[in-house]
Design a protein around this nucleic acid. Sequence first.
DNA 1: AGAAATTTGTCCGTATGTATC
DNA 2: AGATACATACGGACAAATTTC
Lengths: 141, 141
Amino acid sequence: MPTPHYGQPRYRAIADELRERIQSGVIPPGALLPTESTLCAEFRASRGTIRHALAALREEGLAVTDHGRGTYASIHVWGSSGQSRTALRTVLADSRLAALLGVTLGEQVTEQETAIEENGRVSSVVRVYRKPVRSADKQSK
Amino acid sequence: MPTPHYGQPRYRAIADELRERIQSGVIPPGALLPTESTLCAEFRASRGTIRHALAALREEGLAVTDHGRGTYASIHVWGSSGQSRTALRTVLADSRLAALLGVTLGEQVTEQETAIEENGRVSSVVRVYRKPVRSADKQSK
DNA sequence: AGAAATTTGTCCGTATGTATC
DNA sequence: AGATACATACGGACAAATTTC
């Protein structure tokens, strides 16, 4: 059923949600957002509406889209003159990371740490762990 | 010429046709479906529409797609409460397999064996042979 | 081993028709 | 009537995985 728009339009609500994910680090800087069709499924919205939301994020500078590749979260600077420091390093997986990421204990994983600043003070630190890419993963390849 | 959708959408009609071919055995389990562009030509539909149809089949579990390779017809489980066990192993190609698969005699091929159960009894066994794909399979997601 | 061709994945822009505020 | 949104469909382009030469 076509969803009417009470108050706020859908595309704006979706943009708000995605903005929140980017700024909170749920979608870390440099990471790919879900594909358009995935977002269609998640938000149960049509492609036009999704694209409308993504366009809004691009205008804000929060996202960059590469033709044929996808939409990335950009490294965004929060606050007025707020700087965000991000560090990328390799750490050894603890037991929890190992279980969640599906690696063995002590295996190397990449840690991307982002310090989020608001009003000149670091309000939060986000650490994102992933299996190392570009070298040797791909589970079944 | 954007085709309006009076009545049934085209992607669904195409999915119906392909489903019929898989379930009837015209496209046997494990075989590759025609490529997307071939299907475009056959149904005179755009690639997006073809992919829409294929996505529907994937959701039904009737097809599995590999990036850069193609879309396979899955082992179909007949019956409503049919259970199936599948085993994957590597065997040596006999002369018939060699000729059909285009490998040399005695070359390794993967054999996917599925035992289809109905009412607690194995009603049939399906064996699917393919050229090895590099290692084990994957098909998560 | 490397280049080219295939094939799928994703995005772009546009278009038509329908439905609901 | 206009804005919003949905579902569908087209054709084109670039990206990435696989296969072939």
